[in-house]
Design a protein around this nucleic acid. Structure first.
Lengths: 246, 246
DNA sequence: AAGTGGTCTAGACCACGTC
DNA sequence: ACGTGGTCTAGACCACTTG
């Protein structure tokens, strides 16, 4: 009965199938929080696989925060908050939804530009490459919260400048229209003061604290740069949440 | 010759010994950036271990950002910046060392206190519990960089208040003297302005931007709270580096 | 003593990249 | 064709926790 649920012929590795299966049962509540999961040996018997394969599924679930394991005791379902709080690559849209706010945008600029020296240096691309500069005011429940400026390598997303981003998520367009999968990003976070521009656009005082981020985003190969982005958030309305692991 | 460098009798797992050995050779420059490392099978032969054990060492190095691997090609030394940018649970001491700065501390306060309502609420502990409040100015190359205030649950570290933290790392004391292993932490990051206290202690102007963090640290079980800490950094000298993964 | 996760072995077949 | 990493097996011994 159980064995029908994993296929040896599928191109998807068995450990991954087991992992998704357990993940689903955890999220659906089939297993309760802190409930003991089947042991590595039990899983192996249940699905006719070796212990090492079952082990790998459980190990990866542990790495993703779904499961915690204790030697001599077993594997258990982790607290739900741990399943979300992990720091990963998200868009403003996703970030706001997680916070229970309604994300929005007002496009200030969306056009093709030549890369200047700073951009070429930061991204390590050829000086003749063209970029799309997309600058938006980001809204949370209709209120201006941040200014976000993205520079995208146009060769990966031609005609991006013709898309209306007032009602479209950049990351969704990249994925669905251009088949671009983001892999990782390097981000710096710092505290700054609002300048002339932020004061006008975000309708705030001058010289109030801002949380500023700078990000370089890479494709799944981990090396190809796709985007450079700068964001600056009203510090009185925005905090960064981070989950740190040993 | 090579085999002498790993011990089968050591309580330290072989994969870990191999991992540290490779890590050292990467950091010392014995292997250059983007240089091809020994393959899994080669490592196995070199040290008389099975391929799976060698594999595990390389996999973990990949996870820590030291190595990237490409199917059909091999394992290669990653860019140095990737070796640092991973976000994980570190102390100020470790953080500074990674940045190539000399960490230091000046203790402002180290004493036993009663928990007030805020502390009890944040940590979810019993109101009668006692805490140790440890407040330090953190130095980088001798210059004041941050103010760090930690609240530790005294039941886990009795007599902590008698230790001189001017020359001791808190996390090392917790580990070596009390056998405490930290598991994870939840942290918020925000931008604030320097107040009276920061101005005096850090010798900076008033109303300059500060990067402030608030952290709750848990033991390896992921549930037991051990520490609540607040830090505030001079924003002109400190940025947060984050590596985001999909 | 029995069960658990942690480590390790000595093989195997596969998909992928290079020559 | 050959070497690489990716997956998988069917065992093994260990340290740890619980009854």
């Amino acid at each position: 009965m159980s064995q029908a649920e994993v296929s040896r012929k599928s191109p998807i590795p068995i450990y991954h199938q087991i992992k998704e299966l357990l993940k689903e049962r955890i999220e659906s509540g089939f297993f309760d929080t802190h409930e003991c999961l089947p042991s590595e040996r039990e899983l192996g018997e249940m699905y006719g696989i070796s212990r090492m394969t079952a082990r790998r599924a459980l190990k990866e679930l542990e790495g993703e925060g779904y499961v915690y394991r204790e030697q001599g005791k077993g594997s258990f379902v982790a607290e739900p908050k741990l399943r979300q709080a992990l720091l990963h690559l998200t868009s403003f849209t996703e970030d706001m939804r997680k916070r229970g706010l309604d994300p929005g945008a007002k496009v200030l600029e969306n056009q093709v530009i030549e890369g200047d020296k700073e951009l070429v240096d930061k991204l390590g691309v050829l000086p003749e490459e063209k970029f799309v500069r997309l600058q938006r005011v980001r809204l949370a429940d209709g209120e201006p919260l941040a200014i976000e400026t993205s520079f995208l390598r146009r060769k990966f997303c031609p005609e991006l400048e013709e898309i209306d981003f007032n009602n479209e998520s950049l990351y969704r367009v990249l994925n669905e229209r251009y088949g671009i999968d983001l892999g990782r990003a390097e981000q710096t976070v710092e505290a700054t003061l609002s300048g002339e521009f932020e004061t006008q656009i975000l309708n705030i005082e001058k010289a109030v604290p801002m949380l500023s981020t700078e990000r370089i985003t890479y494709l799944t190969d981990g090396e190809t740069v796709i985007e450079y982005a700068r964001s600056t958030y009203r510090a009185d309305r925005y905090k960064l949440y981070v989950e740190l692991r040993r």
